[in-house]
């Protein structure tokens, strides 16, 4: 492990902005997609019930 402190970890050797934007955007997209699919499923089930 090469991090002396938490600040050092978040600074990422001066590349913090690029590194954390990359990982943050990826996390947002994955979580967002899971939520979107979940909501779509709920809506689809409601739609199917409405048809009956």
């Amino acid at each position: 492990m090469q991090w002396g402190s938490l600040t050092e970890f978040f600074a990422m050797g001066g590349y913090g902005l690029y590194v954390w934007t990359s990982f943050g955007a990826t996390a947002l997209c994955l979580v967002g997609e899971v939520l979107a699919v979940w909501r779509r499923h709920v809506a689809a089930l409601a739609g199917a019930r409405a048809v009956s």
Partner: peptide
């Protein structure tokens, strides 16, 4: 797989998917 389940419900429109 989760989206596949959505697509199945949307396209089959079955009341019994509960």
């Amino acid at each position: 797989l989760a989206r596949m389940r959505c697509v199945i419900v949307e396209r089959e429109r079955q009341p019994s998917w509960g």
